[in-house]
Simulated assay, not measured.
Amino acid sequence: MKTTAAILNHANTELEVTDVDVDDLRPHEVLVRMVGVGICHTDLGVIAAPAPGQTPIVLGHEGSGVVERIGAGVTLLSVGDPVVLSYAHCGECDHCTADLPQHCRAFVPLNLVGARTDGSTPLHRDGTPVLGAWFGQSSWAQHAVVAENNAIRVDDDIPLDILGPLGCGIQTGAGAVLNTLDPEPGSTIAIFAMGSVGLSALLAAIVAGCDTIIAVDVSDARLDTASDLGATHAINSATTDPVARIQEITGGLGVNYSVDCIGFSDVVRAALECLQTPGVCATVGFQGMPNDVTVDQGHLLFGRTLVGVVEGDAIPGAFVPRMIELHREGRFPFDRLITTFDFADINTALDAVHRGDVTKAVLTFPTP
């Protein structure tokens, strides 16, 4: 069959929206008709600097849609199921079988290359391969070929088109708080960088019952959004020393927990140094590799912990439904982060993301 996809042909160029051929499904793969898909920082990184041999590629890894076809052996899903797509994992290694799929031994080849692990791709254009397995989905397209364990069936009482970011960006921020840090009610937390991941962490801190929630950013506009969503304090780190101000807010103690959502060296240091002892900082920001960060080992020696977090330490099959249930209860209004664009306007949406005009851009598809 044919479908329409947005193809990156070369670094830092507009995506080409064009028809591609979709191969027959392999066992345990499903074909998903996309309804919505988010734009994530990781996608932007590839647009800016694809690896050698990584183009042409269809990006996109925050998809939501409806199962249209299933391959032989599929048992977890049926045609017509509404699904949210998350990161790919093998389901067979020691980490996957120990409920640590975010640390799947094959995480990099399954998610960050763009091809299947055997080097093949389900997409072709005029007979030429187009990488179509980015994060196991390549969902900047009207259809995506997905492994069945990469798709989470969801209820249909919440609009499906806005659910895609629950599979990555929103999951990352919220999971860093609810899964990794798991703060006690009444605890204090500082969150650095108020993009979609940081704001998702903020919403999760409210769910957890944190008493003091401090938002840190260099943009007054983003800090205003954080305050509107429930931050108790806002610090513009372009004009104010965030560590000193956090110490002041907490009566000289520092916060119990912090989250770094950008990965800059000075931000990671500040997120660690603003902690009381003991205290835990979760770092989820990513600036590519290598990304050297220098910290004072004394901060660790005296009881502070710095922990890296992948995909919010989430098991998507459990955590995506949990976030949806929290939204249903009115406790996790992630929809307030989202601005939608027609899929045909993907390059306009990308420009808006680059300018910082939107918090989380989601592309929507016409109903067939």
Rank of each mutant, 00 (worst) to 15 (best):
2 K>D: 11
5 A>Y: 08
7 I>L: 15
12 N>V: 01
16 E>Y: 00
17 V>F: 07
17 V>E: 09
17 V>T: 13
24 D>R: 14
24 D>A: 15
26 R>L: 10
29 E>C: 07
34 M>R: 06
34 M>T: 06
34 M>I: 09
36 G>R: 11
44 L>R: 12
50 P>F: 00
53 G>I: 02
53 G>S: 06
54 Q>R: 06
55 T>C: 08
56 P>T: 02
64 S>E: 10
66 V>D: 06
68 E>F: 00
74 V>S: 11
78 S>Q: 15
81 D>I: 04
84 V>Y: 11
84 V>E: 12
85 L>F: 08
86 S>D: 05
89 H>D: 06
90 C>T: 09
92 E>P: 00
93 C>N: 07
93 C>P: 01
94 D>G: 02
101 P>V: 08
101 P>D: 08
105 R>Q: 13
106 A>S: 15
107 F>I: 15
111 N>L: 02
112 L>V: 01
112 L>I: 01
113 V>H: 15
114 G>I: 04
115 A>P: 00
117 T>E: 12
121 T>W: 03
122 P>F: 04
126 D>F: 03
129 P>K: 09
133 A>V: 00
138 S>F: 05
140 W>F: 15
141 A>G: 05
146 V>E: 10
153 R>P: 04
153 R>I: 06
157 D>N: 14
158 I>M: 10
170 I>P: 02
171 Q>K: 08
175 G>Y: 02
184 E>G: 03
188 T>V: 00
195 G>F: 03
203 L>Y: 05
204 A>I: 00
204 A>T: 03
206 I>G: 05
206 I>Y: 00
207 V>G: 07
208 A>E: 05
210 C>A: 13
214 I>H: 12
218 V>F: 03
219 S>I: 01
220 D>Q: 14
220 D>P: 08
221 A>H: 12
223 L>K: 12
223 L>P: 02
227 S>G: 14
227 S>N: 14
229 L>P: 02
229 L>A: 12
233 H>K: 10
237 S>N: 12
241 D>P: 01
241 D>L: 01
244 A>N: 09
245 R>Q: 15
246 I>S: 12
250 T>G: 12
250 T>P: 03
260 D>Q: 10
261 C>V: 03
263 G>R: 04
264 F>N: 06
266 D>Y: 01
268 V>T: 06
271 A>K: 10
275 L>V: 10
275 L>G: 11
280 V>H: 15
281 C>E: 10
282 A>F: 03
282 A>P: 03
286 F>W: 15
288 G>F: 05
288 G>N: 08
292 D>E: 13
293 V>P: 03
296 D>H: 13
297 Q>P: 12
299 H>P: 00
302 F>V: 13
311 E>S: 13
311 E>V: 02
317 G>Y: 06
318 A>T: 14
319 F>Y: 14
319 F>C: 05
320 V>N: 06
323 M>G: 08
324 I>G: 09
324 I>Y: 04
325 E>M: 11
332 F>H: 07
333 P>I: 00
334 F>I: 03
339 T>F: 02
339 T>C: 05
340 T>F: 04
340 T>V: 10
346 I>F: 07
347 N>F: 04
347 N>S: 09
349 A>G: 09
350 L>D: 04
356 G>K: 10
368 P>N: 09
